[in-house]
């Protein structure tokens, strides 16, 4: 996994609450058996006027000009400002894959849906929960000046707004550690194999029916 330490980037404001994973990446693109290539279909129905198809070239498609990512001033954005309950709906990891593939490194919102929030960390994408007023301020500052950049510092757990205001955020130590170092958490868990075996032995004793070959 690509490590995340400190990132400075252009912020794009997506002013919509309850953005669900069907909006982030519609179902027709979930037929892929790969982890990459979803960026061109990120927010497909919000971004284009027509219905997108898998494997379709997107360059000539009619775009919805008012959608934030279609505006020239937000081209190359790598920080997404969002509203409450971002990422609600399905567990599809294609949603963070699409955000990552498009070029986003971090998403800032007042709240996230649990599964989406969790999936981001597995992909080097940092979801940040800030107070609603802080998110409001970021939205306002970003709208004010074209090219406004936001600094996300995972080590110090801070977000710095274009005007220099600094907001602190929380993140679990383990997740932070994995993200800072780009660690594969499967490898880390497998280091605990003795503990897992010990648990299994105890469980086999308490609930043997869970360990029998099926149907016996």
């Amino acid at each position: 996994m690509r490590p995340f330490t400190k990132h400075t980037g252009l912020a794009a404001p997506l002013d919509l609450a309850n953005v669900d994973t069907d909006m982030i990446i519609p179902k027709q693109f979930l037929k892929s058996i790969k982890r990459t290539g979803f960026g061109k279909n990120l927010f497909d129905e919000l971004r284009y006027e027509d219905e997108g198809q898998p494997d379709q070239e997107c360059d000539g498609r009619p775009i919805r000009k008012d959608f934030v990512l279609n505006q020239d001033r937000y081209k190359g954005a790598s920080v997404l400002l969002a509203r409450q309950n971002f990422g609600c709906g399905s567990s599809r990891e294609h949603a963070p894959w699409a955000l990552d593939d498009y070029g986003f490194r971090s998403i800032i919102a007042p709240s996230f849906a649990d599964i989406f929030y969790n999936n981001c960390f597995k992909n080097g994408l940092l979801p940040i929960v800030l107070q609603a007023e802080e998110v409001d301020q970021l939205f306002a500052e970003v709208a004010l000046r074209e090219g406004a950049q936001v600094i996300v510092d995972l080590e110090n757990q801070t977000v710095t707004s274009p005007s220099g205001a600094t907001f602190e955020f929380n993140v679990d130590n383990f997740r932070k550690h994995c993200l800072l170092n780009g660690l594969d958490d499967i490898g880390l868990t497998l280091q605990q194999d003795a503990a897992i075996r010990r648990y299994e032995e105890k469980r086999m004793n308490d609930a043997p029916w869970l360990f029998l070959p099926r149907g016996q």
């Binding site: 567990s91 599964i115 597995k122 868990t189």
Partner: peptide, 21 residues
């Protein structure tokens, strides 16, 4: 019982465990 993402599907296949809060 709960839903998980694909990275966690892989994690459970490989380790029989999940890191959870």
């Amino acid at each position: 019982a709960h839903g998980i993402g694909t990275s966690e599907v892989e994690h459970v296949l490989a380790t029989q465990c999940l890191v959870q809060k």
